[in-house]
Amino acid sequence: MGGEGELIMMTSFKNLLRVSVIVPAFALSVIGVSAPVLAADLWQVNADDSSIEFTGTQLGAEFDGKFKTFTAEIAFAPDDLAGSKVRVLIDIASADTGNADRDSQIISADWFDAGQWPTAKFETKSFVEVAPGKYEAIADLTIRDVTQEVVLPFDLEISDSKAEVEGRLTIKRTDFGVGQGQWSDTSQVGDAVTIKIDIDASR
């Protein structure tokens, strides 16, 4: 358990793709409080092989970006979906679209307003297995001060202690107030944004 704590420390100091897994149970055990028994397995995200990317459109052309920093608490077991829960916190200021001007716009008041709302939150409410290896996560997505229920379909592959998750979700940025005032017009900056998650985790 102490090793997990160290890992959290190490990964949070990484320059690139700083992804750490903060599992409350582990944190409690580190300070000597016995961890509650969780039915679902606890998973730890492998930073180097995981990403949260997005695709938007601007001036009619698509552009890609990624959030370089996010943390995820994952408790998941295919045979205990009711006891499974995932909570992801995304650092808005870590958005990288390969263009400094656009990146500084993204965090400004008209868009994500990272000064006021620095994190976006994805918190699952339930899971549904739609086919073997294929699931849907019903979750609350919070961006700025808006929380909306979303459904994230994802593929899951578990082999021994490794898991790979791939999912894709399209949302409308204006549903979350991303793009205030003149930017609520979607003719130059498209409304639809596709979020692509690719998580590599181990237990």
Binding site: G60, A61, G98
Partner: peptide, 22 residues
């Protein structure tokens, strides 16, 4: 280079000639 692909009157998008490079 700026990672702003070129769309032509919204009809089609040109392929990027180089990757993002500040």
């Amino acid at each position: 280079a700026a990672n702003y692909s070129v769309s032509v009157f919204g009809l089609f998008t040109l392929p990027d000639l180089v990757g993002p490079d500040k």
